[in-house]
Amino acid sequence: MSTLLDVSNISKRFTVPRGMSGRPSTVHAVDDVSFSIAPGETLGLVGESGCGKSTVGKMIVRLLEPDEGQIRLDGEDITHASHRAMRPLRRKMQMIFQDPNGSLDPRQRSGDIVEEPLIVHGLGGSAERKAKVADLFARVGLRPDQMTNVPSKFSGGQRQRLAIARALALNPSLIVADEPVSALDVSIQAQVVNLMSDIQKEYGLAYLFIAHDLGIVQHISDRVAVMYLGRIVEIGDTAAVYRRPSHPYTRTLMEAVPRPDPARRHGRIKVPRGEVPSPLDPPPGCTFHPRCPIATDICRAERPALRRVASGAEAACHHAE
């Protein structure tokens, strides 16, 4: 299988001032993360707040520079590509955010927002561009008369459709989507998820789909990576990870998700122990060991590496089978 995006051993550290008396300290926001995405494939990246999943997304689209490791897009090393060198690469890779307001100019008309990347990249004449914008509006389910509206005239779901239209304008091969539906109402979430699935098939798009909602991630992803405190603790085919979660943290996450089924309420939730430790002072060994029901001495001493387990996925756990 060919590889579209290849991320190897990337790390990102942030320096945090530690209050009035303490010295500044370092957070390993992302610590030695590797994965790849094939053309047309969706990798779901899940985890709780602060696990580093958004930082991974930002490094891939080069909003942040990794401190270590390498990112290759279509075989080309883009880890430290200059702004100028990135320009042709931007055509291959786009990003969609949770809050489209942050990425859509509030004063610009929505038609111009979608057309802008075509102008920046010098694609097509004026008439051609206008036709392309009209196509994109129709494709994402916006009306032609909405082209003259500014984004504030749109509902949340429509703004996300607009962001998708702009991302599609350059025919990218990869879209990094960071919590693209978490701010939307339930009835609108389904619409946007279905739209993303449909255009994926049509355009042969690959997604890095970053989200905390395990139901949605399962629904859209071919493979899933679970992050905890800056590291991937489990990665594999969606069916393997969901049917037979191998890392105790993955199991904790799955069990914690409330199910819309009152018949199964009592005694079902296995409430996870404790809280996520501070990334400023992560535990030694396996960082999940203080909360892990099956931790032993080795877990407190040695950090487990990802390895193949029985489900077919890879898990970073000394005790996974």
Binding site: V186, S187, Q189, A190, V193, D213, L214, G215, I216, Q218, H219, S221, D222, D237, T238, A239, Y242, R243, M254, V257, R259, P260
Partner: peptide, 14 residues
């Protein structure tokens, strides 16, 4: 609304 919630366990086969 009940139908549109993506549930864990459903449609596992990609």
């Amino acid at each position: 609304l009940l139908g549109s919630i993506p549930q864990i366990e459903d449609a596992l086969d990609t």
